[in-house]
Simulated assay, not measured.
Amino acid sequence: MLQILSITAPIFVLIAIGFISSRAGMVSREQIAGMGKFVISLALPALVIKALTERPLHQVFDRNYLLAYGLASLAVFWLGFAFSRWVRKDSLSGSALSGLGMSMSNSGFIGYPIVAMVLGPTAAVGLALGMMVENLLMLPMALALAEAGDQRGAGVGRALLGTFKRLARNPIIIAISLGLLLSLLEIRLPAVPRKAIEMLAMASAPVALFVIGGNLDGLKVGGLFADVAQLSIGKLLLHPLAVLLCLLVLPVQDPALRVAAVLFASAPMMSIYPIIGQRYGLEGRCAAALVASTVLSFLSISVFIGGCTDGSACHPRP
């Protein structure tokens, strides 16, 4: 428990620093929005390129892992989307972001440290496989739906055309395409651009968490309980349970990888979730859901770790 707390505590410290800085007037709302654009336009794309180019794809490829994790994530995404769209009567963009929040984990900044603590080196393989599902399937699909919902007043054809045009200019999509191409061709970046990309990638987590805290200042919690409850339950319970169920149908040979998949899925939603929501005017809802799910994830992840440590596949790191 103390080891997990040592991982999650700095996250809350950075969020608190952002909140206090905004409340004290050290940064303005415009500056916080600018930092959010920095993360989404530069730091996060650098992180994606770094994750996809660190090793050749064939070294980490596991078909059943990808299928199980991908199918489970898709099932939870569409469940969340349908519930938001047709039960709660949310907008297309809001429903897409709800589905994304329930099905895409904070793999790099919360999931990986915890899985590495439990499984050791196997965590890096699970991270690479999970990033392929998240960056090549879940994120582009959610962004496409959210962009389509943002094409207000346009016909279906014009909305689709506008969506694809905007996606083609989206820094995250460009980074995914570039990173995948470099990885497939096994091209190693020269030292200078590789170091620059690593430095930008390192900035994504702290700046994103600072922005989350800043967006919490002045956040009206009224009317957000239903959103927070749906996203937290979907992300912390439904997603890992769906992954576990899919792994029963599509078994992975390495038992440690099976544990890694469930633990990655049990992590809260990605830290840049509110920054993506900022593009559609939903940063308040997304920030509240992220903070709540991150707090609750300490309990849910502890339960999943406690369950997996009873088996021989899950063993403490030496």
Rank of each mutant, 00 (worst) to 15 (best):
G108R: 01
V291D: 01
L282V: 05
M131S: 08
A201Q: 04
V221Q: 11
L161E: 11
S266T: 11
V125D: 12
I4R: 06
K235W: 06
R29H: 12
L263N: 09
I173V: 15
S312V: 02
L296W: 08
P190S: 11
S232A: 12
I173G: 01
P255I: 14
E54A: 15
P240Q: 11
Q31S: 00
L160T: 13
I110F: 01
M138W: 06
I32D: 05
V87A: 13
F12M: 06
P268R: 09
M141R: 00
E147K: 05
L282N: 03
N135V: 08
R285M: 14
G101A: 13
I17V: 15
G94T: 08
T163G: 08
L238D: 09
G155E: 13
V133Q: 06
G222C: 04
R23L: 12
D227C: 02
M270F: 12
G277E: 04
M35N: 03
Q59D: 09
S105Q: 02
G94L: 10
L185N: 07
P206K: 04
G36M: 00
K195M: 11
G120V: 08
A242V: 04
I275V: 06
V87K: 14
Y280P: 01
I49V: 14
G311C: 04
Y273E: 02
L74E: 12
T8M: 09
V156D: 15
L219T: 05
A82V: 12
L181M: 15
M131A: 07
L184P: 04
S300Q: 06
H58E: 10
A175M: 11
V192I: 14
L42T: 02
K235G: 14
N170I: 11
F225W: 05
P113E: 12
V259M: 05
N64H: 04
L57K: 08
D150T: 11
V207Q: 01
S312M: 03
I114E: 03
A9W: 00
A203K: 02
G307S: 12
L257Y: 02
C308F: 12
A175G: 09
G149Y: 01
Y69D: 04
A205Q: 08
L237S: 09
L238A: 15
S107G: 05
L189T: 04
E198W: 04
T53W: 13
A256H: 04
L139T: 01
I187N: 05
L263A: 10
G223Q: 06
A96T: 05
F109T: 05
L182F: 10
I174Y: 05
H58M: 06
F109V: 08
C308G: 08
V291N: 03
S293N: 03
Q230N: 09
Q31D: 00
I305E: 03
S73C: 13
P45L: 14
G80E: 03
A175E: 07
A201I: 07
M132N: 02
R317F: 14
F81I: 09
